[in-house]
Design a protein around this nucleic acid. Structure first.
Lengths: 153, 153
DNA sequence: CTTGAAAAAAAGAACCA
DNA sequence: TGGTTCTTTTTTTCAAG
């Protein structure tokens, strides 16, 4: 698929903010008719520009008030060890995000839970079982200043 | 609004993964008819359990390949200073997430950009203008191991 | 929760600068 | 190619039981 033009970008900006906007509403915002907007959205979906549509929930209301950020450094850094670590992390559903980093820390983990007790259990029962963790530092979110899924495009 | 029952939770789990599922599809997955599912979704939206619906984009395809994580510690921690810092961070559109933390670091920032040059400019022109930053450490994402917006409910 | 009916939107065909 | 118009199908929305 070719490059995106300004209209494509505008559509993406709108849908990043509100995926429930109808084709008609998007078309009106762009002073176009429904069909071209419809075709473009389909093209953006097929081309993978739009990965998926999701509902974002209110953490507190669904009883997940705790967010922890963990910084993990591995003891050994051979390829096999890293792959194994990644696999073990992927198996932990509570780990919402995990990034392999460049810097003095190897991995960042964002973990969402119902209580600090659960965090304690997670560290005690699961993370501690993962070999090869050299350093594990935990931080807790006191307040979300901004939290968005949008990219500035 | 009262507590969520198991059906509500199932609906939320489905919509967290795919907000484009029609009421009919959700109803079929739960062996219900459309109407009760429709009413429940409306209730979950009105009650704020569902905050919003968004399209998630492919970072690379929309030309935002760089993700940096910044750890910031403030020099002074009076209330006014913290509020001011938060306000200044909120004004930076590239900062996708910012959390006030408990721990030896005050803030985590997740920043998405098109290039390392842009990161350099951001630090040089914008972050450096924010007074009261004591320590600023930057890390770059080499690889996303997991990245989700779902909560385990 | 079921049924049923009206309004709206999505999907796509055919066509036009 | 990039848009418009028109038609069919599907979905949404909401009353009433």
């Amino acid at each position: 698929m070719e490059k995106l033009d300004e209209i494509d970008l505008k559509i993406l900006r709108i849908l990043q903010q509100d995926a429930k906007k109808t084709t008609k509403e998007v078309a009106e915002m762009l002073n176009l008719t429904i069909s071209p907007v419809y075709e473009r959205i389909k093209r953006l979906e097929k081309g993978g520009y739009i990965r998926k549509y999701v509902a974002l929930l209110d953490k507190k209301l669904v009883n997940i008030p705790i967010t922890a950020i963990c910084m993990v450094s591995l003891r050994y850094h051979h390829e096999g060890f890293i792959d194994k670590f990644e696999k073990q992390i992927k198996a932990l559903k509570e780990v919402q995000e995990c990034y392999h980093m460049a810097g003095k820390v190897d991995f960042f983990l964002k973990i969402n839970l119902s209580s600090l007790d659960e965090y304690h259990e997670l560290v005690r029962l699961k993370l501690s079982k993962i070999e090869n963790i050299g350093v594990l530092e935990s931080y807790f979110v006191l307040k979300e200043i901004t939290s968005s899924t949008e990219y500035v495009i």
